[in-house]
């Protein structure tokens, strides 16, 4: 797994590349938590080059989204983890596990970043 992190104005963009499994999921978790520690709760995960994800990776995503959503500026504005670019195989995992309805998923990063 490889992670490319870019800090934008209001949003942090993380590109997740390769395989997220039990061995690599802790690294993703660590990066997301370091952003939370900086007070950065608006995160877009670009999954266009994600090849593989198993349950430890899914667990990181769901825990992170719960934490991000707990951070609120107003009732309408706050933190979130949003997804951009879901490859077909990963979409299949999202569909099987109900993650498709658990996350806001966008067609590209511009759209996902703009949604905040």
């Amino acid at each position: 797994m490889e992670l490319n992190h870019r800090r934008l104005n209001r949003v942090d963009l993380i590109e997740v590349i390769g395989r997220v499994d039990a061995a690599s999921a802790p690294q993703l978790k660590q990066l997301i938590e370091s952003l939370f520690a900086d007070g950065r709760y608006r995160i877009v995960l670009d999954l266009s080059r994600l090849e593989y994800i198993s349950s430890p990776g899914l667990r990181v995503l769901i825990e992170a989204r719960k934490k991000a959503r707990d951070w609120k500026i107003t009732d309408l504005e706050g933190g979130d983890i949003r997804i951009a670019n879901l490859p077909p195989r990963i979409k299949e995992v999202f569909d099987l596990t109900g993650f498709s309805s658990l996350f806001e998923i966008y067609g590209d990063t511009v759209e996902a970043v703009g949604s905040f």
Binding site: S55, K66, T97
Partner: peptide
């Protein structure tokens, strides 16, 4: 068995591995 229809707030984080095996 995880309830895959429950909303984020109530969603349990574990149990997905065995569930996926049975589905796949």
């Amino acid at each position: 068995v995880p309830d895959i229809t429950s909303p984020l707030e109530e969603r349990q984080v574990g149990g997905l591995g065995i569930y996926l095996i049975t589905r796949l």
